[in-house]
Amino acid sequence: MPLAIETIHLTKIYLPNILALNDLSLGIKEGTIFGLLGPNGAGKTTTIRLLTTLISPTTGQAVVNGFRLDSEQIKVRRTVGVQTDSPNLYLRLSAKQNLLFSAKMYGLTHEEAVKRIKELTRQFKLEDRLENAVGSYSRGMKQKLGIIKAIIHEPSILFLDEPTASLDPIAQREVRTMIIQLAKEYNKTIIMASHNLPEVEKITDQIGVISSGRLIALGSPIELRSMLGQEDKLVIQSSIDLSPFKEVLTVLNGVKNVLLTPDSSKIILELNDYYENTPSIVEELVKHNVPILSVMQQKESLESIYAEIMSINGEKNNAV
């Protein structure tokens, strides 16, 4: 699959001497939902600003949608949509005026723009407030409007900065569904900076963790887990006491460790390979006539993976 974004040693130094982004080299394939994680001030906003031509790199190069950042800025801007943390909405104007303006600036005719505004505001449940001044909107409504504004011209790449931060749970789910739909059905590439780790884990294909301007981890949630040695665990629940079977399971091939819950109704196994070892373990229990109620995969949450990445990075920095 072709790359939607490719950065080559992208570096940004703000004057007088603040290294905001350090030697970022990565490729993001078309149709990917890419999660950009990192603490405040890590360089996420700088990365988005660079890739959307708001600022220029000090050194390095990037290609966005096949257009170079240094020489084809207008072409880059035409093909990206951006929802930033500041509203970027004209509060004195109505939502309709804001959206019409945006749509026309990206080449939509008046009729096309009106049609698209109708569709999107219906989807985001804003059609009843379309004629109201945006200044009268709640924070969540402004957030929705910001997202509509970013996608009104159907950009190939969408940059979202905390897209669900101010939204109610239902609206959050709608935005998540929309993001997945855009990527999977329409092959749009989504770059999403967020602190909402469960959400990032739910919808992203690839994650980049940035700290102090450096990309310190890159991969899918599964790849990050295995990179940190955090293999998935197997949890088996039974209606009987499982303690007599602990030793039987411990000696099985691929089992690294076996733990019992205090009531002995669940057994937790750390395995060399979850998918390869699970069938033989279940088979062994069935052989011993153990009534199995459930077999579950227990994953480390992205939150704990992120915490570990940050702590390893902190240790490395301290060692230096």
Binding site: T53, L54, S86, N88, Y106, K149
Partner: peptide, 14 residues
Amino acid sequence: ERQTIEGLFLLPLT
């Protein structure tokens, strides 16, 4: 002042 300058600069204009 009204925090819309990023939006302005994201438009495909020189």
